[in-house]
């Protein structure tokens, strides 16, 4: 039995090697095709977007629809995870035993509080600079979420209450995105087509909502994983 198991593993390893070989061969061949990419098109169209950073322009304008649906994915993960880790939809994230005891104190409470202000400052800077330099809503949201995770680890149960109260933040990005998309369509006639005169303001609104939802959902998902682990009765 043991021996057969080993030979099976050998075959699987061989298959994996072949797979890696095939993938690398395809990758090298594809890379040598030296396709032009889309950067010229992006650079040429950048002037019409009121955004100076090409990555942000792709995320929020050229392919803003991807980002909209991505907010749907985040919302879905949060909906299911928060329901499974808590007793009901009303109490989205329940302060559980595990969150209070073994995790509590794993990050020094003092350190978590010290980190909070600079992390929030970094997040705000990333959000602000996102329109013309690397950075933006997703990065800012991730940094806020990191601050929230440190806070949760440092303070246990208190944070769960905050997490529960802010549940409307989770669908905020999807909601604002949809609303903005329809609102600009009233002016320009096309869904998600930002009119020149308000493009910056509309995008800032979407960025702020996206950062808030990403921050909230990532922090809540962390709490959900902790709670699910602590739910064994």
């Amino acid at each position: 039995m043991k021996r057969r198991h080993h030979s099976l593993e050998g075959w699987l390893a061989l298959l994996a090697g072949l797979l890696a070989l095939g993938l690398v061969a395809a990758g090298v061949l594809a890379y040598q095709a030296d396709s032009p990419g889309l950067q010229d098109l992006v650079v040429r169209s950048l002037a019409q977007t009121r955004v100076d950073n090409p990555v942000t322009a792709v995320l929020l304008d050229f392919r803003g629809y991807d980002t909209l649906l991505e907010m749907g994915v985040l919302l879905l993960a949060w909906l299911t995870a928060s329901t499974l880790s808590g007793p009901s939809h009303e109490r989205l994230v329940r302060p559980s035993a595990r969150l209070e005891s073994p995790v509590d104190g794993s990050v020094d409470r003092m350190l978590a509080r010290l980190l909070l202000a600079p992390l929030l400052l970094v997040a705000a800077y990333l959000l602000w600079r996102g329109t013309d330099a690397p950075g933006g809503a997703l990065q800012a949201g991730a940094v806020v979420a990191a601050a929230a995770v440190a806070w949760q680890l440092g303070s246990g149960a208190e944070s769960s209450v905050t997490v529960r109260r802010g549940y409307w933040l989770a669908p905020a990005a999807l909601g604002v995105f949809l609303l903005a998309g329809v609102a600009v369509a009233v002016v320009t006639g096309t869904f998600l087509n930002h009119p020149q005169f308000a493009a910056r303001e509309v995008m800032m609104a979407i960025e702020v909502a996206t950062a808030a939802s990403v921050a909230y959902i990532l922090a809540a998902l962390f709490a959900c994983v902790l709670n699910a682990g602590g739910n064994g009765k």
Partner: peptide, 18 residues
Amino acid sequence: PFAVVLPAVAAVAAVVMP
């Protein structure tokens, strides 16, 4: 776009008003 937007708006509403 409305075939995608309408169910999404309804979903957001259903989350906010369970």
